[in-house]
């Protein structure tokens, strides 16, 4: 037994010490081997329409938020799919509390936005993160008029979204966003991608009442992109007709009902933070 000790030790050490992979930069494979192979086909498209992003800072314990939701719903009725809505549950009004307000819809990205834009009292909204009359955070009563005041110009950016899965990785989904530059531009841009979920039934304060079967729509679930967004075209000028594809991995939380989920992607001007284009992609089971 003693004679075997050192050969045994050497064998084990060799066996185990080789069980380690050291990865050198670049760590991401975007544009390289795997993504290139897995990237879905995007048809060439030129007839993009300008879409608008309405971000609503809300919370289930906010008394007036349902009124804002009603206005948002009316705007969607009028504008159809050219209005993309996102409900950001953040701040004190979104904190879980005694039943029936035990749900916690706050997210890391929602908290980040709350901290970054500081909406203060609720509800507050942002339309394309633009400034109207010197303010970016708008009262619900201002939303319709401010939206109407936006000039209807040709879009600068076009967005297409697709998803794909990998066999054996059922808990993950890969989301690809194609960014088409429809105009030459030198402005720095960032891409954001988030997951929303519709038709979540849980309690909501509504004035002096509590509606325990309130339906929460376009509720922000998570961010696929970094909180600060992904830098596009490496910060260098782009020419008309250029495009690039960004890929994001999303770990599926079993709580999310996939057929009620959608991906929203939007591009901002990195300096002014104004949204240049937005797109929504409905997920399938």
């Amino acid at each position: 037994m003693k004679k075997l000790f050192f050969p045994f030790l050497g064998l084990c050490a060799t066996l185990f010490l080789t069980q380690c992979d050291k990865i050198e930069e670049p760590f991401k494979e975007i544009g390289e081997r795997k993504v290139a192979a897995d990237t879905p086909y995007f048809e060439t498209k030129t007839d993009f329409v300008q879409k608008y992003l309405l971000e609503d800072f809300t919370g289930h314990r906010c008394l007036n938020c349902p009124k804002a939701h009603d206005i948002m719903h009316e705007m969607q009725q009028q504008m159809g799919d050219t209005l993309v809505c996102m409900g950001i549950h953040s701040g004190e009004n979104a904190e879980p509390a005694a039943a029936p307000f035990t749900a916690d819809y706050r997210t890391e990205y929602g908290n980040f936005l709350d901290h970054h834009f500081s909406p203060g009292s609720y509800p507050k909204g942002m339309i394309n993160r633009k400034t109207f009359n010197g303010k970016r955070l708008l009262e619900r009563t201002e939303w319709k008029a401010d939206m109407a005041s936006l000039p209807r110009t040709a879009p600068e950016i076009g967005l297409q979204i697709k998803d794909t899965t990998v066999a054996g990785m059922d808990d993950s989904v890969y989301v690809f966003v194609k960014i088409s530059y429809l105009q030459a531009s030198s402005r720095p841009m960032r891409l954001y991608a988030v997951l929303l979920e519709d038709s979540i039934v849980s309690a909501q304060k509504n004035g002096i009442k509590i509606d325990t079967n309130y339906v929460h729509n376009h509720l922000l679930r998570t961010s696929l992109s970094p909180l600060e967004g992904s830098v596009l075209h490496a910060g260098t000028p782009v020419t008309q007709g250029e495009s690039e594809i960004r890929a994001y991995a999303l770990f599926r939380n079993p709580v999310w009902r996939w057929r009620k989920c959608s991906i929203v992607a939007f591009v901002t001007d990195a300096e002014s933070e104004e949204v240049l284009q937005a797109e929504l992609f409905q997920m399938k089971e």
Partner: peptide, 16 residues
């Protein structure tokens, strides 16, 4: 050991 099936990152499959 954990397989690398991620399309975005080059991941170490054996982490020591």
């Amino acid at each position: 050991y954990e397989a690398d099936n991620d399309p975005v990152y080059r991941l170490p499959e054996n982490v020591g």
